[in-house]
Design a protein around this nucleic acid. Structure first.
Lengths: 115, 115
DNA sequence: GCGATGCGCAACCGGATAGTTGCACGTTCC
DNA sequence: GGAACGTGCAACTATCCGGTTGCGCATCGC
């Protein structure tokens, strides 16, 4: 398990797992989709299009914030949340490294068979 | 929340969430890394490089299998697991759509400011 | 000032999950 | 045949997670 994968250190893997886990929920994925439009939205706004309580949405937003996927800025009496695409881009790059490693393995196998 | 994001239907979102959740664990991420080399490995092999029990590894492999990330094939007395890169590629594409939507929003904002 | 709005905090609940241990069964190999 | 190996199944525990409710506080608008 400590074999060098497409991942860096174990700490890096832990970080990736945290972001994956944050995205591993339907409601949170919907929040990300709602925020991917670029506009910052308040908790109430994000709750209005959902079927669960404002508190539930708040918890989900905190999870996303801890994973770095989302940033919060207080504006008057409302908390406006905004997407931070950096962790998402990092995750995408990570998945790309996994796929790449897989493709290279297939290519090596193919070359071995054809030799 | 039902606003059209980079996601398709709600069912599609549910599926994505399931795969994200499957990857949202350090141990499972390590398993994926170990299997990304292309070779199929038995449970004992995968356990030997880990600090947890074989049973724990087995459970994690079942989770990955349910998410479609991994396939299992019985070979004699051992179960050999192999990576299926399709869901990972799909997730990568999904993250790409999120980033793209974000970039387009930024571009529109920039155009608006400069007009 | 006062009602309405938006939020945070805390407690609580049910179900999922990560992990362990113990045991039984098929398979391989000598 | 018998020992060693690789798995599967079941039970059990502790913890985490998603969700709700209730309450209190700050802020905005009239």
């Amino acid at each position: 398990m400590s074999r060098a994968g497409p991942d860096g250190s174990a700490a890096r893997r832990r970080q990736h797992a945290a972001v994956f886990a944050a995205l591993g929920d339907e409601t949170r994925l919907a929040l990300v989709a709602a925020l991917s439009g670029g506009a910052a939205r308040s908790i109430s706004q994000l709750t209005s299009t959902s079927r669960v309580t404002r508190q539930a949405i708040t918890k989900h937003l905190r999870v996303l914030e801890c994973a770095g996927i989302v940033r919060c800025a207080r504006a008057g009496r409302e908390s406006r949340f905004e997407l931070d695409p950096a962790p998402i881009a990092e995750l995408r790059a990570y998945l790309g490294r996994v796929s790449e490693q897989w493709d290279q393995a297939l290519a090596r196998l193919k070359a071995l068979v054809e030799s």
